[in-house]
């Protein structure tokens, strides 16, 4: 099976922050969600994949290209949008269309203008006069309009109302429909993501906490709740993210240890709950 992304031991060290090593794959025709608390390293990961920063260790293949130079030349096959993505101040939508037509081999003018209309972007306004949110939408429209084989999007859902988010989800699912193109997107709106993302890459404090099918992660833990007197030492030892209140306790328990929770209230946590209990640092033990 073709793989759009193949990452092996990718790492980046900054004075105040260390990311990685990261190892994951994204096959053609699927959607991967990149999740984690703020500061976990999601944007840094995407910047590494876009060759905007050089890794300290490891390597990766993107659309089959193994070197930064090769990847840069194959940008026709990549559509990306980060918070730092910009376009020239003085360009209007028409300027963007004219220029992108010359820059990308498979630029789809019709697709672009349809997206501009759908996103409610004023085609006559200069880029610098648009709000940051609208600028992001313009950049997203550009990323989606040149028949790229891989989309890398940093928080594309941020700042969108539920209707717009739903429309974007539809767009992304349509994008992978033929089984050839893939999407990697980071998002805080993890409940939405848990629905339609095939794979999840979960980062906590720069570390790769999990990579695999969404269902695997969701079934990895149980949410255990009970009265204060029911909290055993074994539970405390094996559990994660323990919360105690005057009316009881709750924690995450690996499904493999579920015998320890016999007789207590257990449920499969949704993705938001899972992330809340694993927290910013994903501490294992108290």
């Amino acid at each position: 099976m073709t793989e759009r992304l193949n990452v092996l031991g990718l790492a980046k060290t900054y004075p105040e922050f260390a990311l990685g090593p990261l190892t994951f794959d994204l096959p053609a025709g699927y959607i991967m969600g990149l999740i984690g608390p703020n500061g976990a390293g999601k944007t840094t990961t995407l910047r590494l994949l876009l060759d905007m920063a050089q890794p300290s260790a490891g390597e990766f293949t993107l659309n089959g290209a193994q070197t930064a130079d090769a990847r840069q030349q194959a940008r026709d096959d990549l559509g990306a949008m980060l918070d730092s993505t910009t376009l020239p101040d003085v360009w209007t939508v028409k300027d963007i269309d004219d220029n992108m037509h010359r820059l990308f081999r498979r630029w789809d003018s019709q697709q672009f203008m349809e997206l501009v209309a759908q996103f409610d972007i004023n085609p006559k306004t200069m880029y610098r006069r648009l709000s940051k949110g609208t600028q992001n939408k313009v950049n997203l429209a550009v990323a989606l309009s040149h028949h790229a084989k891989l989309l890398i999007l940093d928080e594309p859902m941020a700042g969108l109302d539920p209707i717009a988010r739903d429309e974007l989800r539809q767009l992304l699912q349509a994008y992978i429909q033929a089984g050839d193109a893939s999407v990697l997107l980071s998002s805080h709106l993890t409940d939405d993501l848990a629905q339609f993302a095939d794979y999840l890459l979960y980062l906590i404090h720069g570390e790769q906490r999990f990579f695999g099918e969404t269902d695997t992660l969701l079934n990895r833990y149980l949410l255990v709740q009970g009265g204060s007197s029911e909290l055993t030492a074994a539970l405390e030892d094996h559990g994660l993210g323990l919360r105690q209140t005057s009316v009881g306790f709750s924690l995450l328990l690996p499904t493999t240890d579920q015998a320890l929770a016999a007789g207590l209230v257990t449920s499969t946590p949704d993705l938001d709950t899972l992330m809340i209990y694993l927290g910013k640092r994903g501490e294992d033990h108290a």
Binding site: I31, Q173, F196, D198, Y199, T214
Partner: peptide, 17 residues
């Protein structure tokens, strides 16, 4: 498989399974 995933708004892996 892919059509169903899109219609139900769920992941392709789910319908595949």
């Amino acid at each position: 498989i892919r059509g169903l995933a899109k219609d139900l708004q769920i992941s392709v892996i789910t319908t595949t399974r």
